[in-house]
Design a protein around this nucleic acid. Structure first.
Length: 707
DNA sequence: GCGATCAGTT
DNA sequence: CACAACTGATCGC
């Protein structure tokens, strides 16, 4: 939800996405997209009066946004005051103060934002510098680099400030599956259900907001089934959308709504009232698009999660994930960044701690500056780049990724003394005060970067969520790593000796984390990785055979939300540990090699074929010719089997970054992690001495080699 | 009666 | 968690 006040400090005479209060005096208005939280005051009488008394005041937006806005009669009065600007077409605008006659020229460029039809970012260029207002955006990694108008020549423009959509700017939203992944998941689910009989219908439980259209379009194109919606007049001049939606209820895909649609569904009735066709009752499943995410790299989930007998949740996000935000901002590297949205769980301070290091102003003397800390012996020996500093900054100063003390650190350094010796003088006051409150709990100099655990993310409100069992996770390498990690931590607190392999897996997590942060653009979403060996559970996971809950592996793997509450209870048997070693080391490594070219290709040339920015007039010439048509099997009768495949494919999709990073961690780890699963396990007394050295910050390389 | 705001719901 | 929107209660003009 946008809290942006409407104005950027460089150009205070324009108002963007806010139209109340001070914004009533703006010389020009900009609307990034047609969502209510960006339209505050847009139909207020005060603004209406302002328009009536002015010939000059205009609202600038994309052609699609104009169309959507003017479709609503409540905004009709804007008709003669809206100027549609073509996307990616720099336009000069004169900002004239109507009372003083004072004038300022500014150039504005609309850039596609990937949030909903018509959504754009605004790039302002003028005497006060270049400013990018992102509005709400969902841009995949590397997309900023592909925007020509963010560049001059081969270099990115010198951007003074970015006003950024920080909706998911929290490490717990580290990864959100790509548009394509989500789309494919939904597509295959819908395909398999609707192909059973003409009476098998799907209800897409979409919010009343723009942004789902590309889903409708792609489902309709791939399946040849139009989507039933309540209204479509706003698309009357957008044939690419219009063709794929219908107000005829006799279709197998519905996105219609009713104020009490949930209760309709319970009565086997679609929100539009349809309950049977030709006397035959409909078989309805509902799919609720929701934002599902992978917390840092330790968890995975399906893009589709079954939440009940006939209910599914499908991953869908209008907003960029944490890693996408970081990729975007670190590419732009503005001098300043300002969050448009207070982050979900956190404070603005926390967000700024994440974003500031990605800005140039971070290097200025007023800002906190981190030196490499001499005591960080186990930090990679790498060329010290900006992002290295970022990591230090992150590691030290944010609670976003909790830092876990190295073993016995508590003994060797009492709280409040160790952490500041190298860095204290360079930290500004706010940081210092933060440290003061946090130092006793987690922040020390010599910490491992531990993975986030989203313990409180149990978000699934309503449905009869099916409960995970420990067995479901037996083959899940990431999860196992994590639970091992947790075990270490508790072992530590208990004063027991942690087991060796659990210990080194932890370090691998640390390495992964650093690597990924330092090479953001290489950490894109995993494609369709082959599975790990959990075909057993998954094979039961089709709704078509109306399985009971406990058999549905894909449901039990709703991971990103339900995971952490489970994690502590997962026990690792030695057998499972072997499987873990195998998957983390052997298979993980070899897989990663195979996945690299694919991922690299994806980075440079994403699959844009099905996500057209539905924001440009030329989007009306939506190109229906698609690569993915080839997915059609024609095997309509094999619905059940098909769904199985889908869910298997979706659920067993280990994150490519993990795999890559795991491999990386082996080659670069200071710990010299044994590269084979059967590496000899040190004896307890040996371990003790190793941990002592670790705690003291000494190198253990020699000992490790010996052992 | 309308609009703004807030709490609650989906 | 929140998304993005809707509903209903309250308050002020």
């Amino acid at each position: 939800m946008s809290r942006f006040g409407g104005r950027v400090r460089e150009y205070p005479s324009v108002s963007i996405d806010r139209f109340d209060r001070d914004n009533l005096r703006a010389r020009a208005y900009f609307l990034s997209h047609c969502h209510k939280d960006h339209m505050k005051g847009l139909r207020a009488p005060a603004l209406k009066r302002r328009l009536e008394g002015s010939l000059n005041v205009k609202l600038y937006c994309s052609p699609v946004t104009k169309e959507l806005l003017l479709t609503s009669r409540k905004y009709k009065f804007w008709e003669n005051h809206i100027v549609a600007l073509e996307v990616e077409t720099p336009t000069q605008i004169s900002l004239v103060d109507e009372t003083s006659g004072e004038k300022e020229d500014i150039e504005v460029t609309l850039l596609p934002a990937g949030h909903c039809p018509g959504s754009v970012m605004f790039l302002f260029e003028g005497d006060k510098g270049t400013v990018l207002y992102t509005g709400d955006f969902r841009l995949a990694k590397g997309e900023a680099a592909r925007m020509e108008l963010l560049h001059s020549g081969t270099r990115v423009k010198d951007i003074q400030s970015v006003y950024l959509d920080t909706t998911f700017c929290d490490p717990k939203f580290y990864h959100i599956p790509s548009r394509e992944e989500c789309l494919n998941g939904i597509l295959e689910l819908v395909r398999s259900w609707t192909s059973l009989t003409p009476y098998h219908v799907v209800w897409l439980n979409c919010k009343a907001a723009y942004g789902y259209e590309y889903l409708f379009i792609n489902l309709s194109e791939e399946l040849g089934i139009k989507v039933h919606v309540n209204k479509l007049d706003m698309f009357r001049n957008m044939p690419d959308i219009l063709y794929h939606v219908t107000t005829d209820r006799h279709t197998q895909i519905h996105a219609c709504r009713h104020p009490r649609d949930e209760e309709y569904l319970r009565g086997n009735r679609l929100p539009c009232g349809m309950t049977c066709q030709n006397g035959t009752p409909l078989h309805i499943i509902s799919i609720k698009p929701s934002t599902m995410w992978f917390g840092e790299r330790i968890k995975r989930t399906n893009v589709i999660v079954r939440t009940g007998e006939t209910t599914y949740r499908a991953c869908f996000s209008f907003h960029s994930s944490y890693s996408e935000i970081k990729d975007f901002l670190s590419y732009i590297r503005p001098v300043n960044v300002y969050p448009n949205v207070p982050p979900v769980g956190g404070t603005e301070d926390k967000v700024m701690e994440i974003l500031k290091p990605l800005c140039r102003s971070y290097r200025r003397n007023l800002e906190p500056r981190y030196k490499p800390l001499g005591t960080l012996k186990r930090v990679h020996k790498r060329e010290l780049s900006d992002t290295d500093e970022d990591d230090l900054f992150d590691s030290e100063l944010t609670s976003a990724r909790p830092k876990i003390p190295k073993l016995q650190r508590e003994e060797s350094r009492p709280p409040n003394t160790g952490h500041s010796e190298n860095a204290e003088e360079n930290i500004n006051e706010s940081t210092e005060s933060y440290k003061a409150t946090a130092a006793n709990t987690s922040l020390k100099v010599d910490f491992m970067d531990c993975e986030e655990s989203n313990d409180d993310d149990d978000n699934d409100e309503e449905e009869e969520s099916e409960i995970n069992t420990a067995e479901d996770f037996s083959y899940e390498p990431d999860a196992t790593c994590t639970s091992n990690f947790n075990r270490i931590m508790s072992d530590q607190q208990d004063g027991d000796i942690p087991c060796w392999d659990a210990f080194f897996k932890c370090n691998k997590l640390e390495e992964s984390s650093e690597n990924e942060d330092n090479f953001p653009s290489s950490a894109d979403a995993g494609g369709s990785q082959p599975l790990f060996s959990d075909s057993d559970g998954v094979s039961d996971s089709t709704h078509i055979s109306s399985q009971n809950s406990s058999q549905s592996t894909h449901i039990s793997e709703q991971g990103s939300q339900g995971w952490d509450s489970q994690m502590d209870t997962v026990l690792i048997t030695s057998q499972e540990r072997n499987a873990l070693d195998w998957s983390c080391l052997g298979r993980g490594g070899s897989r990663a090699v195979a996945s690299v070219p694919q991922e690299a290709a994806k980075d440079t040339q994403p699959d844009n074929s099905r996500w057209k920015p539905l924001s440009q007039d030329r989007s009306c010439a939506y190109d229906g010719a698609h690569d993915l048509k080839s997915k059609d099997t024609g095997d309509v009768e094999a619905g059940a089997a098909h769904v199985q495949d889908v869910l298997v494919e979706l659920s067993d999709n280990p994150r490519t970054p993990d795999l890559e990073l795991r491999r990386d961690s082996q080659s670069s780890s200071d710990f010299e992690i044994p590269s084979t699963p059967d590496a000899k396990v040190p004896q307890p007394d040996k371990l003790h001495s190793l941990y002592k050295k670790l705690a003291a910050g000494e190198s253990i390389l020699k000992e490790k080699k010996v052992s």
